[in-house]
Design a binder for these strands. Structure first.
Ligand code: SF4
Ligand code: SF4
Lengths: 146, 146
DNA sequence: TTAAAAGGTGTATTTTGAATACATCTTTAT
DNA sequence: ATAAAGATGTATTCAAAATACACCTTTTAA
């Protein structure tokens, strides 16, 4: 059981971007430097976040990215749910591939489902704003001038 | 995000074995037939469950396996936690491999951890007994004479 | 008007862990 | 003895994720 790095990277990008204010924009290069992730990955992640409508990008010199909406409107649970959506958590969750003979009478899947629900319920209590509440500390860790 | 088939298989083995009573024993062959999993896998899973002290095995003719303790003492949460224990759910969870610069000030990991806690909390409310409460139905699905 | 700075896009390769298979051994009742 | 059961270690295959590569488009300032 584990989350994709991709998911974490996405959150990291949002955290970084969320630290920019006003007309400031984050650049992919900056992000890739701070986290030591290759620009390629960051690019992909960013692109994806743009498509999801969480980030706004501007091309060309002087361009960059910024949040497409206020941090408190970016829900952690929603995002994770989306990014990890391909969970065929168990064989029987995926109709069509399901061959498990006891499926119709199996309680396990309900139990797992309930647990998964609890997982996301917690995540959904948080927004990006909660993740950047300690702005100064984060900036310091990133080596950004505050 | 997904659980290993291995985990599901382990539970399936326990469910099957839990349906045997008294001196009855389940055989690996039976299990592999019912679920259509190769004997090899079942063997591995069984072996593992024996090592974990959940199943008792007897070799030789007339041998087989049975639960090493009553079904209500086999906790689903504990088992899943064990079987999925290698979760480096996020990069920073694994000290030593952690390179994430914001780790010391990152709230995300706490959020994820809390969510994970909620996940297991639910699972821990259930035991194997809950999974086999509908014994007759399960037996029917498995094509076992009741 | 062009060069540099930004992001966009598609594809290919590598890596990793899980899933699966193979081979061979030990125990025990009949 | 032998067949029925489980024990054990190793090897192979497979799929998904992670990562890398190549090249395109937009914008703006020199
Ligand atoms: S045992 Fe239950 S949870 Fe597992 S695959 Fe079968 S139906 Fe699904
Ligand atoms: S961003 Fe937070 S959760 Fe993700 S790896 Fe860094 S410290 Fe861990």
């Amino acid at each position: 059981m584990n989350l994709k790095k991709y998911t974490d990277y996405s959150l990291r990008v949002l955290i970084f971007t969320g630290l920019k204010h006003g007309e400031e924009r984050a650049r992919i290069k900056e992000i890739s430097d701070v986290y030591n992730i290759s620009q390629e990955h960051v690019r992909k992640v960013v692109h994806d976040l743009v498509k999801r409508g969480l980030i706004e990008s501007t091309r060309g010199r002087g361009g960059g990215i910024r949040l497409a909406k206020p941090a408190h409107e970016i829900n952690v649970g929603m995002l994770v749910r989306d990014l990890e959506q391909d969970f065929a958590l168990l064989e029987c969750f995926d109709k069509g591939v399901n061959h498990c003979v006891i499926s119709p009478g199996c309680s396990l899947k309900h139990v797992i489902n309930k647990a998964l629900g609890a997982f996301f319920k917690v995540l959904e209590e948080y927004t990006l704003e909660d993740l950047i509440h300690n702005e100064e500390e984060l900036k310091a860790l990133m080596g950004l001038s505050t």
